[in-house]
Every structure is written in C-alpha cells, then in structure tokens.
Simulated scan of single mutants.
Amino acid sequence: MQIIYPPKPRFRLGQLAAHVVVALITLVVIGGATRVMEAGLACPDWPLCFGSFLPGRQMNLQVFLEWFHRLDAFFVGIVLIIQFMLSLRWAKTLPNWLPWTYGSITLLVAFQGFLGALTVLQLLPSLIVIAHLAVAFTLVAIMSGVTQQLLNPGKSIFPLWLRSFGFLSLFSVVAQSLLGSRVATSWAAQRCLDFGDSCNLLGLHQLTAIPVSFLVILFVIVSSFQRDIFINQWPYLLTIIFLITTQIFLGVFSIHLGMSEPSLIIGHQLIACLLVAVIAALNFKGRGIDESSQSLFINQSTLEACHG
C-alpha cells in the first residue's frame, strides 16, 4: 500500500492556513454584524478605540463589535506575517510559488488595514466599504486555495474547462455579494421597503441572484457527471447546494420581514463568505501528488504492528 502525504512543513502550514480561513470568515461576519448594528463608527478613532487599546467605560455592544473586529483583523495579520516568514525559512521544502503568494497576501492585508482605517476616518463611504469587503472575499478565496494546495497538492482535480466554470461561479458569487453590499451600505433596501425609493438597486440585486444561483447549481450538476469528482468530492458539492439554497431562503425572508431581523442579514453574509471559501477550495484542490509529496510504503506486517 502506498500513502501520499505532504512533508511536515507543508502540512503544518496547511493546517495553519485552514485556521486562517476560519478566522477570515469570522472577520467578515463580525464586520457584517458591525454594519447591521450600525457600529461602524462606534470607535471614533483608529487604530485605537477612544484613545486606548481596550476601551473601559465606553464599552457597550456596538463598541465591542467594532473593537473585536479590529482585534480579529490584527491577529489575522500577525498570523499571516508568521506564515510568510515560515514560508521563507522552509523555502527549500516548499513550492516555489508559496513565499511569493504569502508575500502578496501580506501586502493585501496591509491594504485591507488601510481601507479599514478609511472607513472610519472618512465616515463609512459606501464605495470604500464595498472595496473593504471585496478585499476580504479575495483573502478568503486565496487562503482557501492555498490551504488546499498545501494539504492536497498537485494537479487540479478538475479538467481545465470545468475549472474555468468553477472560477466563473466563484467570481459571480463575489460580484453578487458586492452588489448586496452596495444595497446595504446605501440603505437602498430600507428606503425601497419604507418609502418606495431606490428600488432599482434592490431589484437589480434580486434579479441577478437568479442567474448566479443557476450558474452555481449548474456547476455542481456538471461536476457530478464526472465520476471521479462525484465519488471523491460529493461532500463539497452537497455543501455548495445546501449553501446556495440557504442563501436564497435567507434573502427572501429578509425582504419579506422588511430587513428587520439582523440575524438573517448577518447569516446572509456568512453564507456568501462560506460559498466563496468552499468553491475556491474545490477549484484549487489537487490530486494529492506532486514533486514535493512524500511516499510511505506500508505492508501488511507494518499495519499489524501499528495496530498492536
């Protein structure tokens, strides 16, 4: 029997990258909660909050959300810098693209911090908030892909044409999410539902949700026709179907309830972020074999000894 596994440095970085993906998704969700709870300016200064690292008597739910959002972003940045440094230290045992990728991600995180500062200092301008979310989704997609390439290296499980279909689905989900952010940051949904104003933007978001959902579902169906992919990746495919279905219901119920339930709106952004992470992971997942993988040969007697 032959078992293929990545070398220890690669495996450790892959595990760390997986944790960063979770932290990034959490960061996006907390950012969404901060916006829904109108806490984006709860801390009037940046990078401190009321002039201190930990605000005392000013602390309430809104201040906590904004403060914790910054704290999570800080720790994510530190962990990414550590990963970049480790990729340089272990460069000889890692793929050549990895240090460059981590270096680019580090710069992207610095830019994200700059956008975060602008959202506070410029009093939450809509376009900067959307750019902030766009960079966040980009980081989630890249880190999800890096995780898969570290833990499941090698040639993509998809043929080129199907992988292109997957990336098209990924980009459509991101674009639809950014359009939704535009609706939220301009308060178009509330104005449309309450006063019949700015309904064109909300209508566009609802209209484009149909082809985006159809495209993602079609990607899953076409992927399922590939026997090897269906057998080995059915949990990913099933998860995508579950997420896109849940996303549709959350959007419909949010509008039906007049955007009055913050949990539904936050959940809507969470599902969008999870869709980005899962579709990106599936598109970057390799077959588990490349030039840096190691082979371990195990015979029956070895298995018996391990069992004992």
Results as ranks from 00 to 15, higher is better:
Val135Glu: 05
Val135Ser: 11
Leu139Gln: 00
Leu139Asp: 00
Val140Thr: 03
Ile142Asp: 00
Ile142Thr: 04
Ser144Leu: 01
Ser144Gln: 04
Gly145Lys: 08
Leu150Phe: 08
Leu151Ala: 02
Leu151Gln: 08
Asn152Val: 07
Asn152Gly: 07
Gly154His: 04
Pro159Phe: 04
Leu160Ile: 15
Arg163Ala: 12
Arg163Cys: 07
Ser164Gln: 14
Gly166Asn: 02
Phe167Val: 07
Leu170Cys: 02
Val174Thr: 09
Leu178Gly: 03
Gly180Trp: 01
Ser181Pro: 00
Arg182His: 15
Val183Glu: 00
Ala184Lys: 04
Ala189Arg: 06
Leu193Gly: 10
Asp194Tyr: 12
Gly196Arg: 04
Cys199Gln: 02
Cys199Phe: 05
Leu201Lys: 06
Leu204Lys: 06
Leu207Phe: 12
Ala209Asp: 00
Pro211Thr: 02
Ser213Pro: 03
Phe214Tyr: 11
Phe214Met: 12
Val216Trp: 07
Val216Pro: 06
Val220Ala: 08
Val220Pro: 06
Ile221His: 10
Ile221Pro: 06
Asp228Phe: 07
Ile229Asp: 03
Phe230Asn: 15
Ile231Asp: 08
Leu238His: 10
Leu238Gln: 10
Ile240Lys: 01
Ile240Gln: 03
Phe242Arg: 09
Leu243Thr: 05
Ile244Phe: 05
Thr245Ile: 06
Thr245Leu: 13
Thr246Met: 10
Ile248Asn: 11
Phe249Cys: 15
Leu250Lys: 07
Gly251Lys: 02
Gly251Asp: 02
Gly251Gln: 05
Val252Trp: 11
Ile255Met: 14
His256Val: 13
